[in-house]
Design a protein around this nucleic acid. Structure first.
Ligand SMILES: [Zn+2]
Ligand SMILES: [Zn+2]
Ligand SMILES: [Zn+2]
Ligand SMILES: [Zn+2]
Lengths: 169, 169
DNA sequence: CAAGGTAGGTAATGTTATTACATCACTCAC
DNA sequence: GTGAGTGATGTAATAACATTACCTACCTTG
């Protein structure tokens, strides 16, 4: 079983997020910063309760679900984090400027997440939306399947030790 | 607030499902049939626990989550039901022959679900997948926003009685 | 009828997310 | 400075969604 991939583009840094927040006049509080740092360290989609545990470790005190969910809500609203719907998990974004634009290949085998650009598809979505008078907000495009690495090694490596990678197995 | 739409194509009937099951040599048991009938009556995406309650009413006895989830699993595997990921809900399909092909407009306001055909987009998905060596299985495409009806009436009708339509408000 | 397989019943538990309310911290009149 | 008002966080409880494990019923087939 191959290792999980990173999303190909460079991930957002904490400093960049801080800068954008300042430009937008929204508050990048300590909690929100720590939550974002924690998400970055996972190298893959992170479940809300994994984040809660990470926050507890970092803060040295109990952290309730609402605390984590509120931080995630802020990060999502500002395009710093994308929710992966089919995994109930959260992934740091690579492009906070156009939050609704991402789409993902998700490997069912190793958990890899591979982001692709949707710009070329948007015209198609828009024309279909226009036909029925629908105004599109958030776009969720998640294509599940098998990544290149996992296809190469599927037959040979099957049935060995259970290793979970990519943040969510 | 306007009424929720049906998906535009004609919904699958119980008879048609029975026929397909028979052709495929899979068992359309009483429970599975009743579950499918219940889903049809909701006129929109149905949460698993709403289905459980519907089954309990119809069967006059307690129904545990596994019973409902197993029926849903069967119906999904055979393309009779589609899971709406962003709603944690289940919707009877209109085209059991090509289960991976659908995409949905989902109105955040009234809960309407509007299915669109994705065939033209598949080439685009395929070419992107090919570029990175990804083999695509299940496709999830859900575009959230505001349906035509809700756009017309948003400003005028706001702030009145809370009416929930379309199965999931 | 015995063996094996598929479907369904039941209890318990796991996982994800929200509600409601209390508290804290900062800002801005006054 | 003080006290409202506001946005952010803390806490407890609960809701909503989903799975595991195990058992029982039934059907098929040799
Ligand atoms: Zn990989
Ligand atoms: Zn993989
Ligand atoms: Zn409508
Ligand atoms: Zn609507």
């Amino acid at each position: 079983m191959p290792a999980a991939h990173q999303p190909s583009p460079v991930p957002l840094t904490v400093d960049r997020v801080a800068q954008i927040c300042s430009e937008r006049g929204v508050k990048f509080t300590a909690l929100r910063r720590i939550a974002f740092e924690a998400l970055l360290e996972f190298n893959g989609p992170v479940g809300a309760y994994d984040l809660i545990r990470a926050l507890q470790r970092r803060l040295g005190k109990p952290v309730g679900p609402p605390t984590a969910y509120r931080a995630l809500e802020f990060l999502q609203e500002n395009g710093f984090v994308t929710r992966i719907e089919t995994r109930n998990a959260f992934l740091p974004s690579t492009h906070p400027e156009d939050p609704a634009t991402g789409a993902f290949f998700l490997c069912n085998h190793c958990g890899a997440t591979l982001e692709m650009d949707l710009t070329e598809l948007e015209a198609e979505f828009a024309s279909r939306a226009a036909k029925v008078g629908f105004r599109v907000g958030r776009r969720v495009v998640e294509l599940q399947g098998t990544c290149a690495d996992c296809q190469e090694t599927t037959s040979a490596a099957e049935g060995q030790s259970q290793v979970v990678k990519g943040g969510r197995g």
